[in-house]
């Protein structure tokens, strides 16, 4: 029972359901669209998460696994407070920061300007971002391209930059969505090092990945999500074995 647990909880996810409104663009849906009723029938709701509950504690790093479209990223967005659940709630000791591959900042702007905007959006002042700028660029390892528009970056480059921006702040709760998969070996090692540091300073890290190796390397607990439901929650080796056995 969590209530008898002596560890300090950082994130409590309490029975959340998440729904997406989907704008159908098919011909059939378009024909069904009725102006008279003013109810757009082309819009349907899709339940992405179904009654998910768990508690995360200080110093835990939790892997999240599941096949494509199972709801892993949606879960991360809900924990970050970017999507509000239709049922249930997420509680956290501090504002969780989400770092995802798809988090396009502003593609027309240079890497340098995205560093500034990302820093400001994380809550820093302009002066603070300027102070950290060198470290962020150094960590990202893409100094040569920092003045080019972000849309010209490869997916690996932009993921590195985003990771560098997000990690610049000492977040207590960090959610990492596939960001490690795209980097090269050096960068992965550097990032994993950083994640371990964070975990050791009583932070909580969530890591979404399809790479069971990086999950095993960093995580001490794994959640398996399937079709929006929490299938399993526990020891990495056990959960991964069950997941791979099923796949």
């Amino acid at each position: 029972m969590a209530a008898t647990d002596t560890r300090t909880p950082t994130v409590v996810v309490d029975g959340i359901d998440v729904e997406y409104r989907v704008f159908a663009s098919g011909k059939a849906a378009g024909n069904q669209m009725s102006l008279a009723s003013l109810k757009p029938k082309g819009v349907s709701t899709y339940r992405a998460l179904h009654d998910i509950s768990f508690v995360a504690h200080e110093g835990e790093s939790i892997g999240v696994i599941g096949h494509n479209g199972s709801g892993k990223s949606t879960l991360m967005r809900s924990v970050a407070g970017l999507i509000s659940p239709v049922k249930g709630a997420v509680y956290a000791s501090s504002r969780p920061a989400l770092l995802g591959v798809n988090a396009a900042l502003l593609p027309n702007l240079s890497g340098a300007r995205n560093v500034m905007l990302g820093g400001l959006a994380l809550g820093y002042s302009k002066a603070e971002v300027e102070e950290m700028y060198e470290d962020i660029v150094e960590f990202s390892g893409i100094r040569d391209f920092i003045d080019m528009p972000m849309k010209t970056y490869s997916s690996g480059m932009s993921a590195r930059l985003r990771f560098a921006i997000a990690i610049s702040r000492a977040h207590q709760i960090l959610l990492i969505d596939e960001a490690l998969a795209v980097g090269d070996k050096d960068f992965r090692q550097k990032s994993q090092e950083r994640i371990r540091q964070l975990r050791d300073t009583a932070g909580t890290v969530f890591l979404v990945s399809h790479s069971m190796k990086s999950i095993r390397d960093v995580c001490d607990r794994v959640l398996w999500i399937d079709h929006g439901r929490l299938m399993m929650d526990g020891d990495p080796d056990e959960v991964i074995a069950a997941y791979e056995g099923k796949a």
Partner: peptide, 17 residues
């Protein structure tokens, strides 16, 4: 459900978002 939200409140956690 009540158990978890009460637990979160007791631990001083705030609702996200």
């Amino acid at each position: 459900t009540e158990g978890l939200s009460a637990y979160a409140e007791q631990a001083g956690l705030e609702r996200v978002g």
